[in-house]
Design a protein around this nucleic acid. Structure first.
Lengths: 218, 218
DNA sequence: ATATTTTTTTAGACTAGTCTAAACTTTTAT
DNA sequence: ATAAAAGTTTAGACTAGTCTAAAAAAATAT
Protein backbone atom coordinates (compact mmCIF):
# COMPACT_ATOMS: atom_id res chain seq x y z
CA UNK A 1 0.00 0.00 0.00
CA UNK A 2 1.45 3.32 -1.05
CA UNK A 3 1.15 6.51 0.95
CA UNK A 4 -0.49 9.64 -0.37
CA UNK A 5 2.99 11.14 -0.82
CA UNK A 6 4.48 8.14 -2.57
CA UNK A 7 1.58 8.15 -5.02
CA UNK A 8 2.17 11.81 -5.78
CA UNK A 9 5.87 11.32 -6.43
CA UNK A 10 5.16 8.35 -8.67
CA UNK A 11 2.61 10.31 -10.65
CA UNK A 12 5.08 13.16 -11.12
CA UNK A 13 7.80 10.75 -12.24
CA UNK A 14 5.42 9.06 -14.65
CA UNK A 15 4.46 12.38 -16.21
CA UNK A 16 8.04 13.64 -16.44
CA UNK A 17 9.22 10.39 -17.98
CA UNK A 18 6.51 10.77 -20.62
CA UNK A 19 4.86 7.49 -19.87
CA UNK A 20 7.94 5.70 -18.64
CA UNK A 21 10.07 6.23 -21.75
CA UNK A 22 12.59 8.83 -20.56
CA UNK A 23 14.66 8.88 -17.39
CA UNK A 24 14.01 11.73 -14.99
CA UNK A 25 16.29 14.04 -13.00
CA UNK A 26 16.06 14.79 -9.30
CA UNK A 27 15.75 18.50 -10.01
CA UNK A 28 12.85 18.01 -12.40
CA UNK A 29 10.96 16.06 -9.78
CA UNK A 30 11.72 18.70 -7.15
CA UNK A 31 10.39 21.37 -9.49
CA UNK A 32 7.17 19.51 -10.27
CA UNK A 33 6.53 18.59 -6.65
CA UNK A 34 7.37 22.09 -5.39
CA UNK A 35 9.91 20.67 -2.99
CA UNK A 36 13.68 20.54 -2.56
CA UNK A 37 16.13 18.18 -4.26
CA UNK A 38 17.22 16.79 -0.89
CA UNK A 39 13.66 15.66 -0.15
CA UNK A 40 13.40 14.07 -3.56
CA UNK A 41 16.58 12.07 -3.03
CA UNK A 42 15.12 10.60 0.16
CA UNK A 43 11.86 9.64 -1.48
CA UNK A 44 13.62 8.21 -4.51
CA UNK A 45 15.43 5.79 -2.25
CA UNK A 46 12.15 4.63 -0.75
CA UNK A 47 10.45 4.13 -4.10
CA UNK A 48 13.52 2.37 -5.40
CA UNK A 49 13.49 -0.07 -2.45
CA UNK A 50 9.89 -0.88 -3.33
CA UNK A 51 10.91 -1.53 -6.94
CA UNK A 52 8.68 1.20 -8.29
CA UNK A 53 11.59 3.01 -9.88
CA UNK A 54 15.15 2.18 -10.87
CA UNK A 55 17.70 4.54 -9.40
CA UNK A 56 21.34 5.18 -10.10
CA UNK A 57 22.99 7.82 -7.97
CA UNK A 58 23.53 11.10 -9.79
CA UNK A 59 21.89 9.79 -12.95
CA UNK A 60 18.19 10.18 -12.22
CA UNK A 61 15.44 7.59 -12.08
CA UNK A 62 13.50 5.36 -14.44
CA UNK A 63 10.04 4.13 -13.61
CA UNK A 64 9.57 0.34 -13.53
CA UNK A 65 6.70 -1.68 -14.95
CA UNK A 66 5.22 -1.93 -11.48
CA UNK A 67 5.70 1.78 -10.84
CA UNK A 68 4.06 2.64 -14.13
CA UNK A 69 1.10 0.48 -13.29
CA UNK A 70 0.67 2.20 -9.91
CA UNK A 71 0.97 5.63 -11.51
CA UNK A 72 -1.62 4.73 -14.11
CA UNK A 73 -4.07 3.68 -11.42
CA UNK A 74 -3.72 7.06 -9.70
CA UNK A 75 -4.25 8.81 -13.03
CA UNK A 76 -7.26 6.60 -13.73
CA UNK A 77 -8.80 7.57 -10.42
CA UNK A 78 -8.04 11.26 -10.90
CA UNK A 79 -9.69 11.34 -14.31
CA UNK A 80 -12.71 9.29 -13.32
CA UNK A 81 -13.33 11.65 -10.39
CA UNK A 82 -12.95 14.70 -12.64
CA UNK A 83 -15.50 13.17 -14.96
CA UNK A 84 -17.84 12.53 -12.06
CA UNK A 85 -17.52 16.08 -10.78
CA UNK A 86 -18.36 17.59 -14.16
CA UNK A 87 -20.96 15.14 -15.43
CA UNK A 88 -22.82 14.45 -12.21
CA UNK A 89 -22.15 17.34 -9.85
CA UNK A 90 -22.11 20.11 -12.45
CA UNK A 91 -18.65 21.36 -11.67
CA UNK A 92 -17.11 23.40 -14.47
CA UNK A 93 -13.95 22.01 -16.03
CA UNK A 94 -11.78 24.64 -14.38
CA UNK A 95 -12.99 23.74 -10.86
CA UNK A 96 -12.24 20.04 -10.74
CA UNK A 97 -8.49 19.67 -10.49
CA UNK A 98 -7.83 20.40 -6.81
CA UNK A 99 -10.68 18.24 -5.57
CA UNK A 100 -9.63 15.37 -7.85
CA UNK A 101 -6.10 15.66 -6.46
CA UNK A 102 -7.56 14.63 -3.13
CA UNK A 103 -10.08 12.07 -4.37
CA UNK A 104 -7.46 10.21 -6.41
CA UNK A 105 -5.91 8.87 -3.20
CA UNK A 106 -9.00 7.14 -1.84
CA UNK A 107 -8.18 3.46 -1.54
CA UNK A 108 -10.94 1.15 -2.71
CA UNK A 109 -11.03 -0.94 -5.84
CA UNK A 110 -14.73 -1.54 -5.43
CA UNK A 111 -15.33 2.20 -5.35
CA UNK A 112 -13.40 2.95 -8.48
CA UNK A 113 -14.92 0.09 -10.48
CA UNK A 114 -18.43 1.11 -9.43
CA UNK A 115 -17.70 4.75 -10.21
CA UNK A 116 -16.43 3.75 -13.65
CA UNK A 117 -19.64 1.85 -14.30
CA UNK A 118 -21.82 4.67 -12.94
CA UNK A 119 -20.16 7.03 -15.42
CA UNK A 120 -20.67 4.60 -18.30
CA UNK A 121 -17.00 3.63 -18.68
CA UNK A 122 -15.81 6.96 -20.07
CA UNK A 123 -12.63 6.98 -22.15
CA UNK A 124 -11.70 10.64 -21.65
CA UNK A 125 -12.01 13.17 -18.82
CA UNK A 126 -13.48 16.68 -19.10
CA UNK A 127 -10.18 18.00 -20.48
CA UNK A 128 -10.07 15.32 -23.14
CA UNK A 129 -7.34 13.33 -21.42
CA UNK A 130 -7.65 9.57 -21.84
CA UNK A 131 -8.76 7.49 -18.84
CA UNK A 132 -6.70 4.30 -18.39
CA UNK A 133 -8.92 1.23 -18.07
CA UNK A 134 -8.76 -1.11 -15.09
CA UNK A 135 -5.73 -2.85 -16.58
CA UNK A 136 -3.94 0.45 -17.14
CA UNK A 137 -4.51 0.40 -20.88
CA UNK A 138 -4.79 3.84 -22.46
CA UNK A 139 -6.71 4.44 -25.63
CA UNK A 140 -4.42 6.65 -27.70
CA UNK A 141 -5.56 8.73 -30.61
CA UNK A 142 -3.06 10.81 -32.54
CA UNK A 143 -3.73 14.44 -31.75
CA UNK A 144 -1.87 17.48 -33.03
CA UNK A 145 -1.69 21.05 -31.75
CA UNK A 146 -4.21 23.28 -33.48
CA UNK A 147 -1.23 25.52 -34.23
CA UNK A 148 0.18 22.84 -36.56
CA UNK A 149 -2.97 22.41 -38.64
CA UNK A 150 -3.17 23.90 -42.11
CA UNK A 151 -5.55 26.73 -42.88
CA UNK A 152 -9.16 25.87 -43.82
CA UNK A 153 -8.85 22.19 -42.88
CA UNK A 154 -11.72 20.98 -40.68
CA UNK A 155 -10.82 19.57 -37.27
CA UNK A 156 -12.33 18.75 -33.88
CA UNK A 157 -11.02 19.93 -30.50
CA UNK A 158 -10.03 16.81 -28.56
CA UNK A 159 -8.10 17.98 -25.48
CA UNK A 160 -6.20 20.74 -23.76
CA UNK A 161 -2.53 20.06 -23.17
CA UNK A 162 -2.01 22.13 -20.04
CA UNK A 163 -5.29 23.15 -18.54
CA UNK A 164 -4.81 25.85 -15.94
CA UNK A 165 -8.12 27.11 -14.56
CA UNK A 166 -7.69 30.52 -16.18
CA UNK A 167 -6.99 29.02 -19.60
CA UNK A 168 -10.04 26.79 -19.27
CA UNK A 169 -12.22 29.73 -18.26
CA UNK A 170 -10.94 31.64 -21.26
CA UNK A 171 -11.79 28.76 -23.58
CA UNK A 172 -15.33 28.55 -22.24
CA UNK A 173 -15.72 32.27 -22.73
CA UNK A 174 -14.75 32.18 -26.40
CA UNK A 175 -16.87 29.08 -27.04
CA UNK A 176 -14.20 26.38 -27.28
CA UNK A 177 -15.14 23.00 -25.81
CA UNK A 178 -14.06 19.38 -26.19
CA UNK A 179 -15.70 18.09 -29.36
CA UNK A 180 -16.08 21.50 -30.96
CA UNK A 181 -15.58 21.60 -34.76
CA UNK A 182 -13.02 24.23 -35.72
CA UNK A 183 -11.34 25.57 -38.85
CA UNK A 184 -8.41 27.94 -39.10
CA UNK A 185 -9.43 30.95 -41.19
CA UNK A 186 -6.09 32.70 -41.19
CA UNK A 187 -2.65 32.45 -39.66
CA UNK A 188 -1.28 35.83 -38.68
CA UNK A 189 2.38 35.83 -39.56
CA UNK A 190 3.38 38.68 -37.25
CA UNK A 191 2.78 36.85 -33.94
CA UNK A 192 1.63 33.39 -34.92
CA UNK A 193 -1.90 34.01 -33.71
CA UNK A 194 -4.83 32.44 -35.53
CA UNK A 195 -8.25 33.51 -36.60
CA UNK A 196 -10.51 30.49 -36.18
CA UNK A 197 -14.14 29.58 -36.75
CA UNK A 198 -15.77 27.60 -33.96
CA UNK A 199 -18.98 25.62 -34.42
CA UNK A 200 -19.37 27.09 -37.87
CA UNK A 201 -20.53 30.39 -36.47
CA UNK A 202 -18.07 31.99 -34.02
CA UNK A 203 -15.03 33.80 -35.35
CA UNK A 204 -12.27 34.58 -32.83
CA UNK A 205 -8.56 35.29 -32.69
CA UNK A 206 -6.43 33.12 -30.42
CA UNK A 207 -2.77 33.46 -29.53
CA UNK A 208 -0.02 31.12 -30.69
CA UNK A 209 0.35 29.83 -27.13
CA UNK A 210 -3.34 29.00 -26.92
CA UNK A 211 -3.18 27.22 -30.28
CA UNK A 212 -0.24 25.13 -29.05
CA UNK A 213 -2.25 24.06 -26.02
CA UNK A 214 -5.29 22.89 -27.95
CA UNK A 215 -5.01 19.41 -29.43
CA UNK A 216 -7.19 18.39 -32.36
CA UNK A 217 -7.91 15.51 -34.71
CA UNK A 218 -8.53 16.09 -38.41
CA UNK B 1 -7.63 23.66 8.58
CA UNK B 2 -7.68 20.44 10.55
CA UNK B 3 -5.61 17.40 9.71
CA UNK B 4 -7.09 14.03 8.95
CA UNK B 5 -6.03 12.86 12.41
CA UNK B 6 -7.41 15.87 14.25
CA UNK B 7 -10.76 15.38 12.52
CA UNK B 8 -10.84 11.76 13.61
CA UNK B 9 -10.12 12.58 17.23
CA UNK B 10 -12.76 15.27 17.23
CA UNK B 11 -15.31 12.92 15.76
CA UNK B 12 -14.52 10.32 18.42
CA UNK B 13 -14.80 12.90 21.18
CA UNK B 14 -18.09 14.15 19.80
CA UNK B 15 -19.52 10.63 19.74
CA UNK B 16 -18.26 9.73 23.20
CA UNK B 17 -19.59 12.97 24.66
CA UNK B 18 -22.99 12.11 23.19
CA UNK B 19 -23.26 15.24 21.15
CA UNK B 20 -21.19 17.43 23.42
CA UNK B 21 -23.20 16.90 26.59
CA UNK B 22 -20.87 14.67 28.63
CA UNK B 23 -17.18 15.08 29.33
CA UNK B 24 -14.89 12.36 28.01
CA UNK B 25 -11.97 10.45 29.51
CA UNK B 26 -8.56 9.97 27.91
CA UNK B 27 -8.91 6.21 28.13
CA UNK B 28 -12.27 6.23 26.36
CA UNK B 29 -10.77 8.16 23.49
CA UNK B 30 -7.77 5.82 23.37
CA UNK B 31 -10.12 2.85 23.22
CA UNK B 32 -12.25 4.30 20.42
CA UNK B 33 -9.25 5.43 18.39
CA UNK B 34 -7.39 2.15 18.93
CA UNK B 35 -4.38 4.01 20.25
CA UNK B 36 -2.61 4.55 23.57
CA UNK B 37 -3.52 7.02 26.31
CA UNK B 38 -0.17 8.78 25.93
CA UNK B 39 -0.92 9.58 22.30
CA UNK B 40 -4.36 10.86 23.25
CA UNK B 41 -2.90 13.22 25.84
CA UNK B 42 -0.66 14.77 23.18
CA UNK B 43 -3.50 15.26 20.73
CA UNK B 44 -5.79 16.63 23.42
CA UNK B 45 -3.30 19.40 24.05
CA UNK B 46 -3.28 20.30 20.38
CA UNK B 47 -7.05 20.38 20.06
CA UNK B 48 -7.28 22.33 23.27
CA UNK B 49 -4.86 24.98 21.96
CA UNK B 50 -7.09 25.34 18.91
CA UNK B 51 -10.11 25.81 21.18
CA UNK B 52 -11.87 22.76 19.82
CA UNK B 53 -12.07 21.16 23.25
CA UNK B 54 -11.73 22.27 26.84
CA UNK B 55 -9.19 20.31 28.81
CA UNK B 56 -8.40 19.96 32.47
CA UNK B 57 -5.54 17.66 33.36
CA UNK B 58 -6.64 14.32 34.77
CA UNK B 59 -10.32 15.22 34.35
CA UNK B 60 -10.95 14.52 30.69
CA UNK B 61 -12.15 16.83 27.94
CA UNK B 62 -15.29 18.67 26.91
CA UNK B 63 -15.95 19.61 23.32
CA UNK B 64 -16.45 23.32 22.60
CA UNK B 65 -19.06 24.91 20.37
CA UNK B 66 -16.46 25.28 17.65
CA UNK B 67 -15.27 21.68 18.09
CA UNK B 68 -18.82 20.42 17.91
CA UNK B 69 -19.39 22.31 14.71
CA UNK B 70 -16.26 20.81 13.13
CA UNK B 71 -17.23 17.31 14.27
CA UNK B 72 -20.70 17.74 12.80
CA UNK B 73 -19.25 18.73 9.44
CA UNK B 74 -17.17 15.55 9.36
CA UNK B 75 -20.24 13.50 10.28
CA UNK B 76 -22.25 15.33 7.61
CA UNK B 77 -19.66 14.45 4.99
CA UNK B 78 -19.43 10.84 6.14
CA UNK B 79 -23.19 10.32 5.93
CA UNK B 80 -23.61 12.11 2.62
CA UNK B 81 -20.90 9.92 1.12
CA UNK B 82 -22.50 6.78 2.52
CA UNK B 83 -25.75 7.83 0.96
CA UNK B 84 -24.02 8.44 -2.35
CA UNK B 85 -22.34 5.05 -2.29
CA UNK B 86 -25.60 3.21 -1.66
CA UNK B 87 -28.01 5.27 -3.75
CA UNK B 88 -25.82 5.99 -6.74
CA UNK B 89 -23.09 3.37 -6.82
CA UNK B 90 -25.17 0.43 -5.59
CA UNK B 91 -23.01 -0.38 -2.60
CA UNK B 92 -24.77 -2.46 0.02
CA UNK B 93 -25.17 -0.85 3.44
CA UNK B 94 -22.55 -3.10 4.98
CA UNK B 95 -19.87 -2.07 2.45
CA UNK B 96 -19.90 1.68 2.84
CA UNK B 97 -18.29 2.48 6.17
CA UNK B 98 -14.58 2.10 5.42
CA UNK B 99 -14.75 4.03 2.18
CA UNK B 100 -16.77 6.81 3.79
CA UNK B 101 -14.14 7.01 6.54
CA UNK B 102 -11.73 8.13 3.85
CA UNK B 103 -14.09 10.29 1.82
CA UNK B 104 -15.19 12.27 4.88
CA UNK B 105 -11.80 14.00 4.99
CA UNK B 106 -11.89 15.48 1.49
CA UNK B 107 -11.71 19.25 1.86
CA UNK B 108 -14.07 21.16 -0.39
CA UNK B 109 -17.21 22.98 0.56
CA UNK B 110 -18.28 23.21 -3.04
CA UNK B 111 -18.03 19.44 -3.35
CA UNK B 112 -20.12 18.68 -0.33
CA UNK B 113 -22.83 21.20 -1.17
CA UNK B 114 -23.07 19.89 -4.71
CA UNK B 115 -23.11 16.30 -3.49
CA UNK B 116 -25.91 17.17 -1.08
CA UNK B 117 -27.93 18.67 -3.92
CA UNK B 118 -27.18 15.73 -6.24
CA UNK B 119 -28.58 13.39 -3.59
CA UNK B 120 -31.70 15.53 -3.13
CA UNK B 121 -30.78 16.87 0.32
CA UNK B 122 -31.24 13.59 2.19
CA UNK B 123 -31.97 13.75 5.92
CA UNK B 124 -30.77 10.26 6.83
CA UNK B 125 -27.99 7.94 5.65
CA UNK B 126 -28.42 4.27 4.65
CA UNK B 127 -28.32 3.19 8.30
CA UNK B 128 -31.03 5.67 9.25
CA UNK B 129 -28.64 8.08 10.96
CA UNK B 130 -29.55 11.74 10.57
CA UNK B 131 -27.42 13.89 8.25
CA UNK B 132 -26.59 17.31 9.75
CA UNK B 133 -27.47 20.14 7.36
CA UNK B 134 -24.91 22.70 6.20
CA UNK B 135 -25.34 24.63 9.44
CA UNK B 136 -24.82 21.52 11.53
CA UNK B 137 -28.48 21.23 12.43
CA UNK B 138 -29.67 17.67 13.02
CA UNK B 139 -33.24 16.62 12.51
CA UNK B 140 -34.04 14.51 15.55
CA UNK B 141 -36.92 12.09 15.76
CA UNK B 142 -37.53 10.14 18.95
CA UNK B 143 -36.65 6.54 18.30
CA UNK B 144 -36.81 3.63 20.71
CA UNK B 145 -35.16 0.20 20.63
CA UNK B 146 -37.43 -2.40 19.13
CA UNK B 147 -36.78 -4.39 22.32
CA UNK B 148 -38.68 -1.76 24.32
CA UNK B 149 -41.81 -1.82 22.17
CA UNK B 150 -44.92 -3.61 23.39
CA UNK B 151 -46.21 -6.71 21.68
CA UNK B 152 -48.51 -6.31 18.66
CA UNK B 153 -47.95 -2.56 18.35
CA UNK B 154 -47.12 -1.48 14.78
CA UNK B 155 -43.80 0.28 14.22
CA UNK B 156 -41.34 1.19 11.48
CA UNK B 157 -37.61 0.42 11.49
CA UNK B 158 -35.80 3.78 11.45
CA UNK B 159 -32.14 3.07 12.13
CA UNK B 160 -29.51 0.66 13.41
CA UNK B 161 -27.67 1.78 16.51
CA UNK B 162 -24.37 0.01 15.95
CA UNK B 163 -24.09 -1.23 12.44
CA UNK B 164 -21.23 -3.66 12.07
CA UNK B 165 -21.06 -5.16 8.58
CA UNK B 166 -22.00 -8.61 9.82
CA UNK B 167 -25.07 -7.33 11.68
CA UNK B 168 -26.15 -5.40 8.59
CA UNK B 169 -25.71 -8.47 6.39
CA UNK B 170 -27.78 -10.48 8.85
CA UNK B 171 -30.54 -7.88 8.76
CA UNK B 172 -30.67 -7.93 4.97
CA UNK B 173 -30.83 -11.70 5.04
CA UNK B 174 -33.87 -11.80 7.32
CA UNK B 175 -35.58 -9.00 5.40
CA UNK B 176 -35.11 -6.05 7.77
CA UNK B 177 -34.47 -2.68 6.12
CA UNK B 178 -34.84 0.99 7.02
CA UNK B 179 -38.50 1.85 6.62
CA UNK B 180 -39.74 -1.70 7.11
CA UNK B 181 -43.03 -2.05 9.01
CA UNK B 182 -42.66 -4.47 11.92
CA UNK B 183 -44.79 -5.87 14.76
CA UNK B 184 -43.66 -7.92 17.70
CA UNK B 185 -45.63 -11.16 17.75
CA UNK B 186 -44.19 -12.56 20.94
CA UNK B 187 -41.53 -11.82 23.54
CA UNK B 188 -39.73 -14.96 24.65
CA UNK B 189 -39.18 -14.65 28.35
CA UNK B 190 -36.35 -17.17 28.56
CA UNK B 191 -33.71 -15.14 26.67
CA UNK B 192 -35.46 -11.90 25.74
CA UNK B 193 -35.58 -12.82 22.06
CA UNK B 194 -38.52 -11.71 19.95
CA UNK B 195 -40.69 -13.21 17.28
CA UNK B 196 -41.46 -10.42 14.84
CA UNK B 197 -43.45 -9.96 11.65
CA UNK B 198 -41.70 -7.95 8.95
CA UNK B 199 -43.54 -6.37 6.02
CA UNK B 200 -46.69 -8.13 7.09
CA UNK B 201 -45.46 -11.43 5.70
CA UNK B 202 -42.12 -12.55 7.13
CA UNK B 203 -42.00 -14.14 10.59
CA UNK B 204 -38.58 -14.42 12.22
CA UNK B 205 -36.97 -14.71 15.63
CA UNK B 206 -34.33 -12.16 16.57
CA UNK B 207 -32.11 -12.03 19.64
CA UNK B 208 -32.45 -9.52 22.47
CA UNK B 209 -29.15 -7.92 21.36
CA UNK B 210 -30.43 -7.47 17.82
CA UNK B 211 -33.67 -5.95 19.13
CA UNK B 212 -31.68 -3.49 21.23
CA UNK B 213 -29.76 -2.40 18.15
CA UNK B 214 -32.80 -1.70 16.02
CA UNK B 215 -34.45 1.66 16.58
CA UNK B 216 -38.06 2.22 15.61
CA UNK B 217 -40.83 4.80 15.64
CA UNK B 218 -44.38 3.87 16.51
C1' DA C 1 43.40 19.30 -18.56
C1' DT C 2 42.00 21.82 -15.07
C1' DA C 3 39.04 25.16 -12.80
C1' DT C 4 34.45 26.69 -12.21
C1' DT C 5 29.64 26.02 -12.08
C1' DT C 6 25.75 23.17 -11.50
C1' DT C 7 23.49 19.32 -9.67
C1' DT C 8 22.98 15.74 -6.36
C1' DT C 9 23.67 13.58 -2.12
C1' DT C 10 24.59 13.44 2.82
C1' DA C 11 24.23 15.10 7.49
C1' DG C 12 21.65 16.89 10.89
C1' DA C 13 17.52 19.17 12.45
C1' DC C 14 12.45 19.95 12.63
C1' DT C 15 7.08 18.70 12.90
C1' DA C 16 3.21 15.43 13.27
C1' DG C 17 1.93 11.49 15.18
C1' DT C 18 2.94 7.35 17.43
C1' DC C 19 4.99 4.25 21.06
C1' DT C 20 7.00 2.35 25.80
C1' DA C 21 8.39 3.06 30.34
C1' DA C 22 8.40 5.76 34.28
C1' DA C 23 6.31 9.28 37.21
C1' DC C 24 2.40 11.27 39.00
C1' DT C 25 -2.83 11.84 40.32
C1' DT C 26 -7.05 10.12 41.38
C1' DT C 27 -10.03 6.47 42.76
C1' DT C 28 -11.07 2.41 45.29
C1' DA C 29 -10.76 -0.79 48.94
C1' DT C 30 -9.89 -1.87 53.34
C1' DA D 1 -7.06 7.16 56.70
C1' DT D 2 -4.04 5.01 54.22
C1' DA D 3 -2.43 1.51 50.87
C1' DA D 4 -3.17 -0.51 46.56
C1' DA D 5 -5.02 -0.13 42.06
C1' DA D 6 -6.29 2.30 38.12
C1' DG D 7 -5.82 5.95 35.06
C1' DT D 8 -3.14 10.01 33.20
C1' DT D 9 0.75 12.57 32.01
C1' DT D 10 5.64 13.21 31.02
C1' DA D 11 10.02 11.90 29.07
C1' DG D 12 12.38 10.12 25.54
C1' DA D 13 12.53 7.51 21.28
C1' DC D 14 10.88 6.20 16.62
C1' DT D 15 8.96 6.85 11.50
C1' DA D 16 7.51 9.68 7.57
C1' DG D 17 8.36 13.58 5.35
C1' DT D 18 10.36 17.96 5.09
C1' DC D 19 14.15 21.51 5.34
C1' DT D 20 19.06 23.99 5.25
C1' DA D 21 23.86 23.76 4.87
C1' DA D 22 27.82 21.36 3.58
C1' DA D 23 30.15 17.79 0.89
C1' DA D 24 30.61 15.23 -3.29
C1' DA D 25 30.06 14.26 -8.13
C1' DA D 26 29.18 15.61 -12.86
C1' DA D 27 28.96 18.93 -16.48
C1' DT D 28 30.85 22.98 -18.60
C1' DA D 29 34.15 26.38 -19.99
C1' DT D 30 38.40 27.85 -20.88
Amino acid sequence: MLSFTEENYLKAIYRLSEGGTKSVLTSEIAEMMSTKAASVTDMIKKLSLKNLIGYEKYYGVKITKQGKSEALMVIRKHRLWETFLVEKLQFTWDEVHDVAEQLEHIQSNLLIEKLDEFLGFPTADPHGHPIPDKNGKIQTVRQIPLADLVTSKKCVIRSVKDGSPSFLQYLSKIGVYIGAPVVILEKIEFDGSLEILIDGNKKVFISRDAAQNLLVTE
